[in-house]
Design a binder for these strands. Sequence first.
DNA 1: ATACTAACTGAACGATCGGTTAGTAAAGCA
DNA 2: TGCTTTACTAACCGATCGTTCAGTTAGTAT
Lengths: 204, 204
Amino acid sequence: MSDLSTPKRGRPGYDRAAILEIAVLAFNEHGYDATSMGVLASRLNLSKAAIYHHFSSKEELLQFALNHALGGLEELLLEPAATTGPAIDRLSHVLRGAVLMLADRLPYVTLLLRVRGNSPTERDALTRRKSFDRSVALLVSAARDAGSLRADIDPATVTRLLFGMVNSLTEWYQPTGPADAAHLADDVLALALNGLRTPSTSRE
Amino acid sequence: MSDLSTPKRGRPGYDRAAILEIAVLAFNEHGYDATSMGVLASRLNLSKAAIYHHFSSKEELLQFALNHALGGLEELLLEPAATTGPAIDRLSHVLRGAVLMLADRLPYVTLLLRVRGNSPTERDALTRRKSFDRSVALLVSAARDAGSLRADIDPATVTRLLFGMVNSLTEWYQPTGPADAAHLADDVLALALNGLRTPSTSRE
DNA sequence: ATACTAACTGAACGATCGGTTAGTAAAGCA
DNA sequence: TGCTTTACTAACCGATCGTTCAGTTAGTAT
């Protein structure tokens, strides 16, 4: 994550990333508001005041965490496979990438998906998230217009149901390995594109 | 809801259901923990203390709300169409019924789906919810064993993704009418069973 | 009128919240 | 050995939390 070579000065201890990791886990367990700086400190085996040496406020912890989740999703949309080629392929790439990103940054995305816009920080995050959703909705519409997707369901509804499925990972997925996430992404794509019904055509 | 004939005694005012309705909306907007009895009171144009005339605690408000959501889902599993006939038909009925129940009791189910188990009340609700999920998972397995559903994806994963899709309604669905919910249920079933891809066979 | 019942208010309570301050502990560097 | 840098602690602050309590208001019943 950070540089491993440079020797550190001063008393060793936590860095921001390590504190953030534990804080995000606590936020997800009890909810952001219900997680007091006191119990957060005891999880870190620190005093409350020590946290304020690394972060200026509780809300800044949330800010850094949400940015880590949103940054990953936003970078996904910029990848070449997401910007060139047939719309259906771009959509598949983004869908698969979203599953992998969720699996990789699970606690951070989990926190993001629970934000309700109760502060400027949360509202900013919601805005960025809606912007991401809108980009995916455009992909769905493009794929539909190209004849790759069924036209009898409203694209906005499709996008929401699709992301409902993907985002639900944060409610139950427990990472066991990187191959696990790739296989899960396969399942999501298969279910989303081909449906649950027994396929009438043969599969390779 | 309650009897309309019996004349009430004493000073008129809120009853439990009316308070609960507003409380649940507030809980969903800011989160249960972040919603203070003070702001709740001001939404009701009441004093904080007045709420305690109707409910013994903040947690009891949550308890009644969660029970209303869970009761609806549990009754769904007891309906004849959910207990008799081919597994695929029973699964379809439950899936459709869940969408309609979500639409009908949207704020209550929304609150239920955000519970994290941070108190005995919340843990009880999570237990009942898991029991419901388990019943649906059994339906999925039965339908798969009967050859109605594809066998190349693990039933547990299918169930979770399926309910991820359905439960995501609480994040975006805005009720406009009862026919609206029925149409939405159609879309969910179509997407879940047949997938997003352009159907190769003709549709009636 | 009087009694009764239910709905409600204002003020206060202990507890806990996020955050601050002043000082200390532990490391590398000179 | 100091000196600097970084990490931390104990004690505390004002604000807000859920809850309680003693009394008041607004209706119905007799």
